[in-house]
């Protein structure tokens, strides 16, 4: 029904214009009305857009932008906090490490000094023992040397007696032995 109505309307109108033979969009008799209603409708639309819709959508977008920026700020804040905690943790860790190093150092030094003292003590002991031994050796050597002198005197007097016969005084002999020993 709608179709037939529209067709009828179309036919009627075309009939009208077919008579005048004007291509409908170029029919100047409609221009005034079209301009008038365009001015009203588009004028209203322009007013409505600039007063209501554009500010509203602009506002929505701005609010969202602000919210996003705010959220980003908050996220940045949280990140800064986390960074600060990490830094604090690292500092504490470094401090603890330094402390541990210090304790180790002290212990090492203490052990070192103790060991050194022990060594010095042992070395001193050994030194005294060594010098005592050396003294004993010198003693023995001297004794031996003096005994060697006696033996030589005896042997010389014996040899003298055997070879020449007669005797030499003990003092002369000792002098001769001492001279040959030089």
């Amino acid at each position: 029904m709608f179709i037939t109505e529209a067709m009828a309307a179309g036919t009627e109108a075309v009939g009208e214009h077919a008579e005048s033979g004007i291509f409908p969009p170029f029919d100047t008799s409609t221009f005034a009305s079209q301009l008038f209603w365009l001015a009203i409708t588009f004028g209203f639309f322009l007013w409505f857009m600039s007063k209501v819709i554009v500010p509203r959508i602009g506002n929505i977008l701005e609010t969202r932008q602000d919210r996003i920026a705010q959220d980003l700020d908050k996220a940045r804040e949280f990140r800064d906090d986390a960074d600060a905690s990490i830094a604090a943790y690292e500092q504490e860790l470094a401090e603890a490490k330094a402390k541990a190093n210090e304790i180790g150092q002290i212990a090492r030094e203490k052990a070192n000094t103790e060991a050194n003292a022990e060594r010095a003590k042992v070395e001193a002991e050994l030194g005294t023992k060594l010098s005592a031994a050396e003294a004993r050796i010198a003693d023995i050597r001297e004794k031996a040397m003096s005994e060697v002198g006696g033996i030589a005197e005896e042997a010389a007097s014996e040899i003298f007696t055997q070879l020449i016969g007669g005797t030499v005084t003990k003092a002369d002999l000792a002098k001769a032995v001492a001279a040959s020993g030089k």
Binding site: S29, T30, A32, S33, Q34, F36, W37, L38, T41, F42, F44, F45, F48, M49, I53
Partner: peptide
């Protein structure tokens, strides 16, 4: 001639729908 035509109706409809 400022008659309200089907063209005017379409303009009003356009503006009403879009708005």
């Amino acid at each position: 001639d400022l008659s309200f035509t089907n063209s005017s109706l379409a303009m009003v409809g356009t503006v009403a729908l879009a708005s």
